[in-house]
């Protein structure tokens, strides 16, 4: 890599060198080690470890839960973003700042708090118990924790797009005879769609790898409420490094695929409306 545009500003060589060194040391070499380890396992052993029935159940919960949670977040996040951008009400700024709470609150703290709320004797658990609904220590609890952790992604992705939407589009639609619902569905929503999909993908990716806020409320029953990241930890505690590595590789590949999808989505939305 060479500076293609000659620059008078000093320091390109040393800063690039340090960046590559530090990046390699902290991130790239350790991640490469994971893949080398998996490659050293042999195909059969890898498949056995990565796709055992208990592991498959964990994937199902992790991917399924993350999908449902991201879907809930798209609806809830759009609602929150809409209200924060479009309406004036007391405490708006406070609520706006609060949206970032799941980013700032340590996951373990969120985890035990959610468990306390949804446990059978918790504030909401109590209300749901007579209805026969159990949240804590079931897959529902897993989804709840994933909704918590994913919410800001949708809100923060949709918010700026909503803010930049030109009012004129809505005005022109109204003057052409569209009612408010038609304006929302035909004019506003198509413009928000790329942001919503991106928000969904971000929330999904985060929920997939989430550990701290989920494990407390999940109950962690093998095959039922055990998420894939927890299974990695469990394998490690049993000194089953191969098993942990195999699951980790599957999860990592999924995460990178998500990253690819997100990047492609962003390129697609740029090319769709701005092509010339």
């Amino acid at each position: 890599m060479l500076a293609t545009k000659s620059s008078v500003i000093p320091g390109f060589g040393p800063t690039l060198g340090y960046t590559l060194f530090y990046l390699g040391l902290i991130v790239l070499i350790p991640l490469a080690a994971l893949f080398f380890r998996a490659a050293g396992m042999g195909w059969e052993q890898f498949v056995q470890a990565a796709f055992a029935p208990r592991v498959l159940a964990a994937y199902r919960l992790s991917f399924g839960g993350a999908f449902i949670a991201a879907a809930i977040n798209v609806v809830a996040g759009l609602l929150v973003a809409w209200v924060l951008v479009r309406y004036e009400f007391p405490g708006r700024k406070l609520f706006d700042a609060m949206v970032d709470l799941p980013f700032a609150l340590p996951t373990a703290v969120a985890g035990i708090a959610l468990t306390a709320i949804y446990a059978p004797n918790g504030v909401i658990g109590q209300l749901l118990r007579p209805l026969g609904i159990k949240v804590a220590f079931t897959p529902i609890g897993v989804v709840i924790a994933m909704v918590f952790i994913g919410m800001p992604f949708v809100v923060r992705t949709v918010q700026p797009v909503l803010q930049d939407l030109e009012l004129e589009h809505e005005e022109v639609a109204a003057s052409l005879g569209a009612n408010r619902l038609q304006v929302f569905c035909l004019v506003i929503l198509p413009n928000l769609l790329p942001a919503l999909v991106t928000g969904f993908a971000l929330a999904f990716a985060r929920a997939l790898g989430e550990y701290g806020s989920v494990i407390f409320i999940a109950g962690n029953m093998p095959g039922i409420s055990e998420i894939a990241p927890l299974l990695i930890v469990t394998k490690l505690e049993q000194y089953d490094y191969a098993g942990a590595t195999a699951i980790a590789v599957v999860m990592l590949v999924a995460a990178f695929l998500m990253l690819l999808v997100i990047n492609t989505l962003q390129k697609w939305r740029q090319s769709r409306f701005t092509a010339n």
Binding site: A33, L34, G209, Y211, A244, A248, M258
Partner: peptide, 12 residues
């Protein structure tokens, strides 16, 4: 984009 658990695992 890496699960925190995996972040720990690589060092182990």
């Amino acid at each position: 984009s890496v699960s925190p658990v995996i972040s720990g695992l690589v060092y182990v």
